[in-house]
Amino acid sequence: MSNPNKIEIIEPRTVWIGADNAPVRLVMYGDYESEACAKAQDIVDQLLQQYGTSLRFQFRHFPLTRIHQYAHKAAEAAVAAVQEGKFWEMHHLLFAHRRRLGSISLKEYALEAGVKDKNFIPKLVDSVYGWTVRADLLEGVEKGVRDVPTFFINDQLYTGNVSLQALAKAIDDAMPKKRKRA
């Protein structure tokens, strides 16, 4: 017998942007309060434009709660948005407003992103999505993530500079030889 009170949670690891058959997959572990992650996301947005259907991107949560007190709740808010197919809208709003991530602000961003859940705040208070964020964090630790932003290109840890030029070169190097960008 199934539990009627159990909530099925759509996990962030299922959310990608870009073509399903893209030859290069870029994954970033990040924190919504991190200035470096916000800059890295701007670079990723440029790369997604530059590479079109050749690049697929996923964001994974790695809140550095020792230094960012709002990062975990912000990540939970992003997971709440996933439930309504509004992750990317919420994701960009969280980075745009990374200095204002209290619960009231999170509710405003959720509304702006198009999240309709009337229980948004109670779910944040009850940490309904807390374990989902923690699962990303633990998986990141297992893969060697120690700080943010951390990138993986086709499941390989990227250790170079987080700049448009350096990431573009690493993506080019990961491309099958016939699919290089113009």
Rank of each mutant, 00 (worst) to 15 (best):
Q41E: 10
L124T: 11
L26M: 09
M90E: 06
A96G: 11
H72N: 15
F120D: 08
V79E: 10
V145W: 05
I121T: 14
A174S: 13
K6H: 12
I9P: 09
R66E: 15
N3M: 00
D20W: 10
A182H: 13
P4L: 04
G30R: 00
P122M: 12
A75L: 09
R99W: 03
H91G: 07
F59S: 11
V27I: 14
P4A: 04
L138W: 03
F57T: 00
G30S: 05
A110E: 02
A19W: 06
S54A: 15
D172A: 02
H68I: 05
K178H: 15
V44T: 01
K6E: 14
D20H: 11
Y109P: 01
V24N: 05
R13Q: 14
H68G: 06
Q156G: 06
K116V: 11
D147W: 10
D126E: 15
E89H: 11
R181Y: 11
I17D: 11
H61P: 03
F152Y: 03
K180R: 14
R98C: 08
D173E: 08
N3P: 02
I104K: 15
H61I: 12
V15L: 11
M28E: 10
E76R: 10
P4S: 05
F151Q: 05
L64Y: 08
M175Q: 11
W131V: 12
S34M: 02
T150S: 14
V162W: 08
D117T: 09
T65N: 13
Q50C: 01
L93F: 01
D31Q: 07
L157N: 05
A166H: 01
F152R: 01
D20C: 07
N154G: 06
I43K: 04
Y109R: 07
Q69C: 11
G18P: 08
E89G: 10
R98D: 05
D117F: 09
A74Q: 06
Q46P: 00
R56D: 01
D173Q: 04
G85H: 07
K143C: 05
P176H: 12
K143A: 11
A71D: 03
H92T: 13
L164P: 02
G140H: 04
V44E: 01
V27C: 05
T150C: 13
K180N: 05
E8L: 12
D155Q: 12
K116N: 12
D45Y: 04
H92Q: 13
A71L: 02
F120R: 10
K107Q: 15
A40Y: 05
L157D: 03
P63F: 06
Y109E: 00
G114L: 11
R179M: 15
H68E: 09
V115G: 07
V141A: 13
R25F: 02
A78L: 07
N161R: 01
R56G: 09
G102F: 08
F62A: 08
R25G: 10
K116Q: 14
K178G: 14
H61A: 14
N3F: 02
A77T: 09
G18E: 03
Y51E: 00
D20G: 09
E33C: 06
V133E: 07
S2H: 09
D117S: 12
Q46W: 06
I104E: 15
T14H: 12
G85P: 10
Y109I: 04
A170W: 04
H91S: 09
K123T: 09
A182F: 13
E112S: 15
A96Y: 01
A38L: 09
G160M: 04
